[in-house]
């Protein structure tokens, strides 16, 4: 079996488990929340509605991908079902890659659908493509961060990821210092173009993509290093 087919098989298992479990439905309900909000406030005439909605979607981004990724990896490591995987001729990275390939797109699609539908409901027009791309990129990177944290602390993967973004990533992203370049949510806002013109000039979009890629690479490296060392 090639590493690729092992990855596909693991992705298939992750998908089946997701569909037959409860996580998908819980994530779906979460994704519906901003749409409900848009329905409630669409007649309020608030000019900041898209910005408010985007802020809410960012919070959704902090919860949904970790719920799927960190739970899938944490369950595997905590339930010791990795014993089945590690005893098979599959490279360990394919386990992480399989889960990422299966679950990250679903988490991203849920958040994007929520954002687009909420935008249509709230302001009557589809949100700008840049914001969609920014949320997609952010979703992928947050999923990778969740994966890394789940390999480090399987039992508290979700809690740690939410804590990381809430208590570290969001605050440093708001700092007027170069530390903000380590913040995923900061780069998501940059890519989405939701900043003021002055701030947008400070943080151009090109380097933001590069920074997100570097953060993703860093956390992928942590996850791969850790998964190679984990013993079942």
């Amino acid at each position: 079996m090639t590493a690729m087919s092992a990855m596909i098989t693991i992705a298939w298992v992750a998908l089946v488990r997701l569909v037959r479990g409860r996580a998908l439905w819980i994530a779906l309900v979460m994704a519906l929340l901003p749409i409900g909000y848009a329905l409630v406030v669409r007649d309020g005439g608030r000019p900041d509605l898209p910005a408010d909605l985007f802020a809410v979607e960012q919070l959704l981004l902090v919860v949904v991908p970790p719920m799927l990724l960190a739970a899938a990896i944490g369950d595997e490591l905590e339930d010791r079902t990795t014993a089945y995987l590690w005893s098979r001729p599959v490279p360990r990275w394919s386990v992480l890659a399989g889960k990422l390939v299966a679950l990250a797109p679903i988490a991203i699609v849920l958040v994007l659908a929520s954002w687009i539908v909420a935008g249509l409901v709230g302001s009557g027009s589809a949100p700008p493509l840049g914001t969609v791309a920014a949320l997609a990129a952010g979703g992928l990177v947050i999923a990778i961060v969740a994966m890394g944290l789940a390999t480090l602390v399987p039992k508290h993967g979700i809690a740690l990821t939410v804590t990381y973004f809430l208590f570290l990533d969001l605050p440093i992203g708001a700092l007027p210092a170069s530390l903000r370049y380590l913040s995923v949510t900061h780069h998501v806002r940059t890519l989405a173009g939701t900043k003021t013109a002055a701030l947008a000039q400070l943080d151009p979009q090109g380097p933001a993509v590069l920074a997100l890629a570097l953060i993703a690479c860093g956390w992928s490296a942590i996850a791969l290093w850790r998964i190679r060392r984990i013993e079942a």
Binding site: M30, L33, A71, G74
Partner: peptide, 10 residues
């Protein structure tokens, strides 16, 4: 427990 935590966070 993982989903309970996620639902609370959401």
């Amino acid at each position: 427990r993982r989903y309970a935590l996620a639902v609370w966070a959401a």
